[in-house]
Structures are given as C-alpha cells and as structure tokens.
Design a binder for these strands. Structure first.
Length: 735
DNA sequence: GAGTTTGAAACT
DNA sequence: CAGTTTCAAACTC
C-alpha cells in the first residue's frame, strides 16, 4: 500500500503520457489555466514526490483541503467551458489536493481532491471521462503513492470507459491506507482532519444512498400525479455525482480504515438526518439530467454514468445498507452545505456540490449536525470546523460530538430503510430524537406551500424531502419552475434572502478573541428578540451559534455565544450586515495585508477554537458549546449558514443573492480574497479564471511548496468564507 | 400529541 | 420605513 516509490514512478509515466496525449494538449489549449495547471501539477507532483512532510501534517488543515475543493468545484462549474473547465479543474484539484495532501500528509486532501475531481468530472457528461480519470489517477497516485492506485488509475486512463468505481475505490483506499501520515494523524488525533474527511465522504455516500432510497419512496408519495417513482429519483438525480463518487469510494474504504475505528462507537442520528436531506438535494440537482436509476446507485455508479456506464443500484445500496459504513461517516453537516450549493442549476450544481462536499470533508466533524439542508450545511461546517479545528483546542466533548453525530448518521443511514417506511412525522421525530439538530431540514409548513422563507427547506435552498411534514408542498423538483420563480421573486425583494444568515468575520477576530468568543461569525441582520433573551433557538443568532452583534435589536440579550454589547467583532460584522459586499471588501482589504494573520483569525474564529483546521462553521463550534451539554445545536444555525453557502439543492437556484452583492468584492480582491466568496458569488468571469483566482493557492500561487504550506492557513480561512457565500456564486456563472 | 410562545417573514 | 399580520419553528405541558 504504502510504496511511494512505485506510485511515483507509475504516476510519472502516466502523467507524461497524458500531457503528451492529444487530449491533454487540446485541453491545455482550451483553458488559459493550463499553464497554471501544468505548473501546479508539476509542483504537486514534486511535493508529492517529496512527499514526506511530516511537519506539514501536523497542522490540521482541513481548511486547506476545503479550499482546494472549493476552488476546484468552482472551476468545474464553469458552464461556458465544460470540457475545458473540467479538465483544468480536475488537474487543479488533483494538484491542489496532492499538494496539500503531501504537505499535510492528511489523506483528507487526497480523498477530497480525488473525490472532488472525480465527482466533477462525473457530473458533467461533457467531460472526457478518460481525462478525468487520468487526472484523478494522477492525483491519487501522486498523493497516495500507492501501488494499487496507480495500476487502476492507469487502467482507467487507458480505458475511456474508465472504471471509475475501481479507480475511486482504489484512490480511496490509497488515500486512506496508503498515507502513513494519515495513519499517524489518526493515531495522534482521533478526530484528525483525515478522519473527518473520511467520515464526510462516507456520509455523503450514505446521504446519497439515502436520498435515492428516500427519494424513491417520496416519488411514490409524491403529490404530483405526474411524478412517478422514477421522477422522484430524478429529483434525487440532481445530487451531485461528484459527491456521490467521492463519498462512495472514500466512504467504503476510508470508513473502514480509520474512521470506522474512531467513529463506530458514536451515535449518528443527527448526521443521518442531514445527510439524507442533503443527499436528496444534491441528487436532485445533479442527477436529474442523467438518470434516476443510476442516481440512486452509488457514487461509483454516478461516475460510470458520466462515462456512459450505468451503475447498478444494488451496488450503491449495498454500501448504504452496510450501515456500518454509513455509520462511520461523519459528514452530515457537510451534506447540508452541499445541499445549499447543490441547489444551483445543473451545471453549477456540480460545482456547488463539490464545494459543499469539500466543505463537508473539511467540516466532517460537524457534519451531521449541521445542517443538512443548507442551513444545516453550514452548521455542519461549523461542526466540522470545530472537530477539525483541533482536538487540542476543542474540548473533548465538543470534538466527540461531531464524531458522534457522524456515527449517528451512519447508524441512521443503516436505519434508512426503516426510516423510509415510516411516516414523515415519525421520521422527523426519530431524527430529532436522534439528536440531529439540524441535520436535514425538515419542514412542517402548512400554509406557505414551502415557497416562502418560512419554510426552512426553501430558505435553505433545498427541496422538501420525505421527512418533511409539509402540506401542499411545492418545494419539490416537480415544481422546480415554481420554486425557481418564487425564489427569484424573493431575491428580487431581498437579494440576500437566501444568503447565509450567519457571516463569519474573520478579520476582526484574533486568536485570543476567538477563544473568548465562540463565534467569530455574526448574524447578518441580527436578531430582534424580545423575550427569549437570545438564549433560545427562537433567536437566529443563538440558533446559528453566533453571538449577537451591533446589528441586533434584541432586548435583554443574553446570548451565550456573545452578547451584542460584548461582541468583539461587531464592527466587521455590522459592516457586513449593512453591506455585505462593502464589508467583504473591507475585510478583504484588511486581510490582504495580513494574509497570515487572517488565516489565523479565521481559524481562531471557530468558536470552538482550535481549529484552525476548519474555519467553516463558526457557529457550530459555538453551538456545540452551549448545546454540547445536552441540548441540540440549533437547527437554524446550520441552515442559515449552509443555505447560503452552499447547498443549493434546487437546481434553478442561482444563488444570485450573494452574487450580486458580492461582485464588488470579487472584483477588487479577486487575487487575494476572492477565495472567500466574492468570486464565487460573482461568478463573473471565466470559470477557470475565477476558479484559479478563487483558490488561494492557485492565485497566489505559488510555487508548489508555497501552496502547500500556505494553503493550510489561508485556505482554511478563506474556505470558511467561501463556504458561506461561494456556493452561490459558483452557481451564478452559468447564467 | 396538542397547545403556546416566539420571532422572522410577509404584508400593508 | 414602521406597524401589523402571517407563519412555522421552538418550546412547554
């Protein structure tokens, strides 16, 4: 497994071949990025080859991974240049992932990268599977350096048919097992990023599976006569293939490897919830186009689809049923994010999903919880962040919580079948009982038809799913047009209506501050609580796990996460609230000078703390603190965050909200901070360019080594930002 | 499980 | 923009 030399050799050969191959050249010509890619690749390779960078691994850099993914996803998103973008993205991903991986020594990156890249590729039919496969293989090989991966990869590359499943599985295996570092990290910290990542992937997979399963059930239940079970599945189809792939491959193996050990014991209900929802959403977004049946199938199947192959549902189900595997997954939170992202239109969906996935991976820890639905998604981020953040920083309890959630989710997944059979109410209750606060969002709307922001699902940018107890629900794939139209209307009124409610202010925070204030993030608008003292979920700030800020008009604020008076970061956040764009710009500017500092801040921001590793969910950590004891984390928190960021299960959703406002931001700071969001939101420019820009690494670019090192800090911080907003932007570009 | 409370969202 | 109504989640019993 761990024969780096072999992998290197093998890898090198294939790479050169690819580069030389007509396809490769063609791609290069198409994408302006190519040069960069090639550079990155080389760098990456070098890094990988150098590979052993124990020091790097030491630092928890889930964030870096996340970032890379985000970037990649964004790139992939580019509608205008599917082929090109895909290739470039893939390459980039692979590189980035590899680089990070090598440095971080965390399998996470590897897993993520491959998965992402794969997912992306798989997602878009236009992509040349072989190319993708090749890239994927490369990344794997380089990263993992595992003999196994290389052979498979080579096979995949050679065959257009590409055996994605095998590749993926191999890659996952390699990643998980191959990297000694990973092992080390695990050993050192049970909740290491790697573990999270794995969990996340697993969760994703599970989610997908669930989604398919549930979806089928839903399809049957569907009000719409026209909808057939198959349709339901179609909805699920939207789910991003990428995620599926990644999760599946990663899940099975990763889970088995490290995660299972760590996670097994932990409960998972929360994760399950989120996962399901998200899965559904994603599937809907991604799957639609291609296939219902296939959709239901595992990630691998998705990949196959891209190639033209049709996976068997059985396979997919198998992992899912295995339950153990699923239970292992910890990504519930991630799932939520993904959903939010997924919502984006078809093309964008992929990207968003990827991003979400990345986020999930990074977040892994929180996953579950969080929010599955969009809202949940972000929360998941927080959770994941908290988890990732660092074992050290975080309290054992907190750290455990996410994992536990994941585990719960996995178990939940196992129980999926049962769950599906159960009535929505029961399901919901179960989920709730399980402890998933936010996991998946399930609404109970009776009059809004789930077409208003009252509906958590709708607000989160996800379609209502089986677990929902809503009546006369129009927030379903079947009514996509209606949903989109409604969204537009709402957005026209308030462009930020679907943006994340919780914005994290990285700038102002300092490590010390972060430690003091659980949540660096703040609610955009602020709450208006009068009776709850901001100590109940009625309060959106509290729900989101963030302290109240100047923007809040609450009375008698006692927010456990930070009172409005005491909030340190209020200024920044307030600015954000006033004008997110402006605020972002400001923050960006501020950050630019102090990239390093910023990174630190971001990490610090995580309430939980440590975590530099996972910037994503500020809320989560904070939430956990309060809730960790017994209460569930607030649902809303996840959704709010997640929704905006990334999950956009609803295809049509463009995520215009964020985009519009943020564009300024992007323009100004494409190079530096675009990562954070603006770029994505803006969705302006060429996808590729945006992507590159978006990715801190690529942008700055840095030499491979630099990327490697730098990525962790920056990316983490940026990632956080991006997650919250980015998803949307990525989606917009298409339009 | 039903009813109440709460505050955001929507409406005027 | 402010006030009111509607809505659904959160909470309580």
């Amino acid at each position: 497994m761990d024969t780096p030399e072999r992998s290197k050799n093998q890898i090198n050969t294939p790479i050169s071949k690819f580069e030389e191959s007509p396809v490769f050249s063609f791609l290069n010509n198409l994408s302006p990025i190519q040069p960069v890619k090639s550079v990155h690749i080389t760098q990456t390779l070098n890094a990988l080859s150098f590979a052993s960078l124990p020091s790097v691994f030491t630092s928890p850099h889930a964030s870096s991974l996340k970032e890379s993914r985000f970037l990649r996803r964004h790139q992939l998103v580019d509608p205008s240049r599917p082929e090109f973008s895909s290739d470039s993205q893939k390459k980039i991903d692979g590189n980035g992932g590899i680089v990070k991986y090598a440095h971080n020594s965390s399998e996470q990156q590897e897993n993520f990268d491959p998965g992402n890249s794969l997912g992306e590729t798989s997602i878009e039919p236009s992509y040349d599977c072989s190319q993708l496969a090749v890239e994927f293989v490369r990344s794997l090989n380089y990263d993992c350096k595992s003999p196994i991966s290389s052979p498979k990869a080579s096979c995949a590359a050679s065959n257009k048919g590409c055996d994605w499943e095998s590749l993926i599985s191999d890659a996952a295996d390699l990643l998980n097992f191959d990297t000694p570092k990973d092992v080390d990290s695990f050993n050192e910290s049970p909740r290491s990023t790697t573990a999270f990542y794995t969990n996340n992937t697993n969760n994703i997979q599970n989610m997908q599976t669930f989604g398919c399963i549930e979806h089928q059930g839903e399809g049957i239940d569907n009000e719409n006569p026209s909808t057939q079970p198959g349709e339901g599945s179609c909805v699920m189809e939207f789910a991003e293939p990428e995620e599926v792939i990644t999760s599946s491959s990663l899940n099975s193996e990763c889970m088995e490897g490290s995660l299972s050990q760590k996670m097994d014991a932990e409960p998972v209900s929360n994760l399950y919830r989120g996962m399901r929802r998200r899965c559904l959403v994603f599937e809907m977004a991604g799957a639609r186009r291609k296939h219902l049946e296939e959709n239901s199938s595992s990630v691998s199947s998705i990949l196959l689809q891209s190639d033209g192959n049709t996976p068997s549902a059985d396979k997919q189900l198998v992992p899912f049923k295995s339950g153990n595997d699923s239970s292992r997954c910890i990504l519930p939170g991630i799932g939520l994010h993904l959903n939010a992202l997924a919502t984006t239109p078809k093309e964008f969906k992929v990207v968003k999903q990827d991003a979400s996935v990345a986020g999930r991976l990074v977040i892994a820890p929180s996953s579950t919880a969080n929010f599955q639905p969009i809202m949940a998604g972000q929360e998941s981020f927080n959770e994941s962040l908290a988890l990732t953040s660092t074992e050290t920083d975080m309290d054992p309890i907190e750290n455990a919580a996410p994992l536990t959630e994941d585990a719960n989710q996995l178990s939940a997944l196992i129980a999926n079948e049962e769950f599906n059979q159960i009535s929505p109410k029961k399901k919901r209750r179960r989920l709730e009982v399980s402890g998933e606060p936010e996991g998946c969002k399930r609404c109970n709307c009776k009059k809004s038809k789930c077409l208003k922001l009252y509906c958590e699902c709708f607000a989160a940018g996800v379609y209502c799913v089986e677990p929902c107890s809503c009546q006369e629900c129009f927030n379903k794939p079947i009514h996509e047009d209606t949903v989109l139209a409604t969204r537009k209307q709402i957005e026209s009124r308030n462009p930020l209506a679907f943006a994340p409610k919780v914005i994290r202010s990285s700038d102002s925070l300092t490590e010390d501050d972060s430690s003091k204030t659980p949540a660096s993030a703040r609610h955009k608008r602020g709450c208006n609580c009068k009776k709850s003292g901001c100590l109940k979920k009625y309060c959106e700030c509290y729900q989101g796990g963030v302290g109240c800020s100047i923007n809040c008009r609450c009375e008698g604020c006692k927010n456990a996460f930070g009172r409005k008076d005491g909030s340190i970061y209020i200024g920044t956040e307030a600015e954000l609230e006033e004008d997110e764009t402006d605020a972002l710009e400001k923050t960006v500017k501020d950050r630019k000078p102090h990239k390093t500092a910023i990174q630190v801040d971001v990490e610090q921001q995580n309430p939980e703390s440590a975590p530099p590793a996972t910037p994503l969910r500020f809320g989560r950590p904070s939430v956990q603190l309060p809730f960790s004891s017994k209460k569930k984390p607030p649902r809303s928190s996840l959704p709010s965050i997640g929704s905006s960021s990334g999950l956009y299960p609803i295809q049509g959703l463009a995520k215009p909200n964020l985009l519009h406002p943020q564009p300024k931001f992007d323009k100004h700071f494409q190079t530096v901070q675009e990562d954070e969001l603006p770029e994505i939101l803006q969705g302006n420019g060429s996808p590729i360019g945006g992507i590159k820009l978006a990715s801190p690494n690529s942008k700055r670019v840095s030499p491979p080594h630099c990327d490697f090192e730098m990525s962790p800090g920056r990316r983490s911080s940026r990632k956080l930002i991006l997650q919250s907003i980015p998803a949307f932007p990525s989606l917009t570009p298409k339009h």
